[in-house]
């Protein structure tokens, strides 16, 4: 870590971690059926690369776990993967700000793929560690899939595949819109900035 990140990236990560956490507050006020708690992660992945993105995601779960309760800490693995994917998608140019509707669709597809991967990574964690439940409303979905004959891990995966892809698609769209709204000069100062300005 010593030399891997420049100071700007280093200062960016904790800010993004907190953005992830605070998003929960905003989504709650708007009563939206989403988490959007990886906006900071995807943003850092896009601006500063896969490793920085992954660290942001993992750290957000760790910090939130320290502050509220450790049950979300195991999902730091998922959050790490989300950040890394965001970094890769940005490198591929899928998060390039601009390009009108085509740009938007590209970002949305990247989000969709990320969401599917996130669901696949989360399922075994949720199944083995938590018996498939989280204590929230989405547990009803797990019950539903199990009653249809799925085993615990299949049911957890089913639950994840219903909620994660939508959430991550919207997350990526929001991040894409934010990248679009950022001044170019500011974006260009980050390590991956060049890949983001059209």
């Amino acid at each position: 870590m010593q030399r891997q990140f420049n100071t700007l990236t280093l200062a960016l990560i904790p800010v993004a971690v907190v953005i992830n956490i605070v998003m929960g507050q905003i989504v709650a006020v708007l009563k939206l059926p989403l988490y959007l708690d990886s906006i900071g992660t995807v943003l850092v992945g896009a601006l500063a690369g896969p490793l920085a993105g992954g660290i942001t995601g993992a750290l957000a779960n760790l910090v939130w776990g320290v502050l509220t309760g450790p049950t979300i800490i195991p999902f730091a693995i998922t959050a790490f993967v989300i950040g890394v994917l965001a970094g890769w998608f940005a490198r591929l140019g899928w998060l390039r700000a601009g390009g009108g509707a085509a740009g938007l669709v590209k970002a949305a597809v990247a989000g969709l793929i990320t969401g599917i991967v996130a669901a696949i990574v989360s399922a075994p964690i949720a199944a083995y560690l938590f018996g498939g439940v989280t204590g929230a409303g989405t547990d009803a979905l797990v019950a539903f899939f199990q009653s249809m004959g799925a085993n615990v891990i299949q049911a957890t995966l089913g639950q994840g595949l219903v909620s994660d892809p939508l959430d991550k698609t919207i997350t990526y769209i929001v991040v894409w819109l934010i990248l679009l709204a950022l001044p170019r000069r500011q974006v260009a100062r980050f390590p991956q900035g060049e890949q983001l300005v059209a």
Partner: peptide
Amino acid sequence: LLPLVGPLVLGALHEVDERA
């Protein structure tokens, strides 16, 4: 959503410079 998330992120990114 955007009018709320936008200022949050833009403002925070703007401060990153000073924090660095």
